[in-house]
Design a binder for these strands. Sequence first.
DNA 1: TTATAAGCGAGACGGTACGTCTCGTCTTGGT
DNA 2: ACCAAGACGAGACGTACCGTCTCGCTTATAA
Lengths: 205, 205, 205, 205
Amino acid sequence: MTEMKAPDSARRSERSRRAIYEAALALVGEVGYPKTTVEGIAARAGVGKQTIYRWWPSKAAVLLEAFLDMADQAAEAAGPGGYEIPDTGDLEADLRTVLRATVDEMNTPVYDAPARALAAEGVVNAEVGAQFVERLLEPQLQLYVTRLRAAQEAGQVRSGIDLRIALELFTGPLAHRWLLRTLPLTHEYADQIVDCAVNGLAPRD
Amino acid sequence: MTEMKAPDSARRSERSRRAIYEAALALVGEVGYPKTTVEGIAARAGVGKQTIYRWWPSKAAVLLEAFLDMADQAAEAAGPGGYEIPDTGDLEADLRTVLRATVDEMNTPVYDAPARALAAEGVVNAEVGAQFVERLLEPQLQLYVTRLRAAQEAGQVRSGIDLRIALELFTGPLAHRWLLRTLPLTHEYADQIVDCAVNGLAPRD
Amino acid sequence: MTEMKAPDSARRSERSRRAIYEAALALVGEVGYPKTTVEGIAARAGVGKQTIYRWWPSKAAVLLEAFLDMADQAAEAAGPGGYEIPDTGDLEADLRTVLRATVDEMNTPVYDAPARALAAEGVVNAEVGAQFVERLLEPQLQLYVTRLRAAQEAGQVRSGIDLRIALELFTGPLAHRWLLRTLPLTHEYADQIVDCAVNGLAPRD
Amino acid sequence: MTEMKAPDSARRSERSRRAIYEAALALVGEVGYPKTTVEGIAARAGVGKQTIYRWWPSKAAVLLEAFLDMADQAAEAAGPGGYEIPDTGDLEADLRTVLRATVDEMNTPVYDAPARALAAEGVVNAEVGAQFVERLLEPQLQLYVTRLRAAQEAGQVRSGIDLRIALELFTGPLAHRWLLRTLPLTHEYADQIVDCAVNGLAPRD
DNA sequence: TTATAAGCGAGACGGTACGTCTCGTCTTGGT
DNA sequence: ACCAAGACGAGACGTACCGTCTCGCTTATAA
C-alpha cells in the first residue's frame, strides 16, 4: 500500500493555480490539446513542473479544473440567477432559446477547444470521463430535467416519459454534430431539433 | 519543395498489412488507445516501423483502416444483403431492431475499444474526424436516410422534415450515452428513444 | 549589494547540530556520498532544510564538520596526549607504528566512507579541498614534520632535505593506494614503504 | 533478471561518438565536472540524450572514454615509440625526465580538469575507480615497472624490493600533491622526490 | 514578566537534471 | 524495391533534489 502523503492545501499558492489555469486554457486554444504538454503549461505559467504534479494527476485533470473555473467565473459574471432554463410557459420557445445559446457556445473557440479536448479525453479515459460528466455535464443536464418536469406537470409532456431520456432528444443530436462535426451547427438546426423533439414528447391525442 | 515519392503499392506486402491490422486492434483492446504505440504495433506485428510510416500517416489512420477492414469482413460474413435497415412497413419496429443491434455492438469490447478510440481522436483531430465520419459513420447514416425516406413516402413521417436531422433523433442520444457513459446502454433505452423520436416525426393531426 | 545577515550562533540549537552530524555520517556510510542529499540529512535528523542551509554552505561542508567533530571526539577519548607520533629514538619503528595505525583506520568503514567522500569532493572543488587540507590533513602532516625534525636533529635524516617533501614519501604512497584502490592496504605494505623511505632519507656514506 | 539487449555496435554512429567526446571534454574544461550534465553534453554534441545512455552507463564513463581517446590520439601523434620511460642507464636522470613531464601534464588545464574529475569520481565510485585504474593508470605504472626492473637487473635497485611498491615512491607523492593541492607542483619538487626515492631504493653498502 | 524577535520543523515554491519512453526519420543488410 | 531491424535527433514524461521562501511554533533574551 503506497500511502500518498497529501500536500497541505492551506499553503497552496493561489497565484500559481491561477497562472496554471490560464496557461492551460491558452495553450489548448493555441496549439491544440495533444500538443499541449505539462512542461509547456509549467513554462508558460512560470511555475515548476512539480507544482503541477503536486496538485493534479494528469494534464486532463488540470484542464478540467481550469475549464470549470472558467465556467464558474462566467456564471458569476452572468448575474444572480446563474445558469438556468427560462420558463415562460412555452416549452418549445424556452428550449429553442437554450439550444441556440448552446450552439453559440459551441461555435466559440475559447469554449470549444478545451471542451472538445476534455470530451475526447473522457471518451477514452473512463476516469476523466466520469469527472467530466459529474462536474461539468451533469449539472447542465439537471437544468433540463427541472424545466421538463415543470412542462410535464403542466401537461405539455406525456406523463409516462423518463425525463433523463427526454432531455437526450435535445442534447444528443447537438452533441453528436458538435463532437463529430458531421454538419454545421446553426440556430436553424437547433430549432428543427426542438421542433421534432418537443413534438415527440407531447401527449398523444 | 518536398517531392514525396509515393511507395509502389503493387509491391506492398499483404502479410505485413494484415499483421499490422491485427496487432493494432489487439493492442487497443488490451492496453487502450493512448498506450498503444506505433513501436508496439510494429513489434507485435513483427514488422519494421518504417513499414507502418510508409503506408499510414499516423497511429489513428492505422487503426481506422484496421477497423474498416474488420467491419468489411464482418459485413462479408453477414451474407449477401450486407448491412441495411429492414423495411417491414412498421417504421417503429424496424428502428427498434436496428437500435437494439447498435446497442449490442457498443457493448461488445472488440468493437467498443477501437471505435471509441477513433471517435475520441476524431473529436480532437479534424483530419481524423473527417475520415472517421466519411468512411465509417456516413455509410451507416445513409441507411437511416434510405429507410426514413421510404417512411416519408409512405406518409409515416412529416413531409417537411429534413431526414439528416430526423436520423439524429435516433443516433444522437445513443452516441451521447455511448461516448460519455452517462448511463447504461440497454435495449429498453433504445426502445424508449425510438418511441419518442418516431412520435416526434409523425405527421401532426 | 546583498547584505547577508549572519545568523545568531548564540541561539543555535545544539541538539539539531548533533543530529545533523549523525545523520550525515550515517547516510554517507549507508548509501554513499553521491546519494546522500541535504533533504535526506534533514529528514533523518528530524530537522528543517533551512536549518542546514543556515549554517553550512553545502553538503560537503556539513560532512567536513561532522567528520572533524567525530575526529575531535575520538581524540578526546584517546587520552591527554591526543594524537602524535611517538619518539622512541628509532625513526623507522616509530613510523611503522604510525603508518600501520593509518592503514587500520583506512580499512575501517566508518572512517573510510566519509573521508573518501571528502577527499573526492576536495579533488574537484577547490574550496572544499582547501578546507579539507587545512582543517583535516595539515594538522596530521605537521605531526610528521615534528617527528622528522627530531630525527634530522639526531642525524638520522640528511640535513639538506625539505621535511615537507620527506613526509610525502610516507603519506603519498599510502594515500595513493587508499584513494585509487590499486592494491590492498596492509601492515606489510606500510612496513615496506617505511623501509624504502627511511633509507632514502638517511645520510649518505 | 533484466536481460539487457545490447545495442548493435556495428551500426554505431562514429560521428556522434566523436562529437560526444569533444563536447564532454570541452564542458568539463569550461564549467567543471559537477556542472557538466548529460543533457549539456548531448546538446553541445548535437545528439539525442538516448544516444549517450545507449552506449555509456554514466557521465563518468563517457568522460573516461573521451579521456582515453584523447590520450590515444596524443600517443599516436607522439610517434612510433609511443609512451615509455627512456633508459639511458642513469636511472635517476631518466625518472627525473619522466616525473618532470608528468608535472607539466598535471599543470596543463586540458589534461588536468578531466583527469581530476575522473580520479575524484573513481575515489567515490568503485566501479569507475576500477576502470580508471585499469584503463588509464595501470598502463602507465607498468612503464615504471619495466624501467625499474632494468635498473634492478643492472644492480641499481636492491634485489629484495617489490617494484610495485618502489614505483609508488615516485608516483604517490606526486599524485598526493596533484589531487589535494597541498603545495605547488614544480620541476624542482619532482627532482627532490626522485633524489630521495632513488636513494631509498639503492643497494645498501 | 511579558514582548519580541530569532531559530526552528515543515514543506511549497521555481528550477534543473535525471534516466526513460516514444516519436518520426534515416541507414544497413537481407530476400 | 520492399522489408525487419534498429540507431538516430528530438523532446516530453514523471521523479528527485536543489536552494529559497513563507508559515506557525517554541524559546530565550532584554524591556
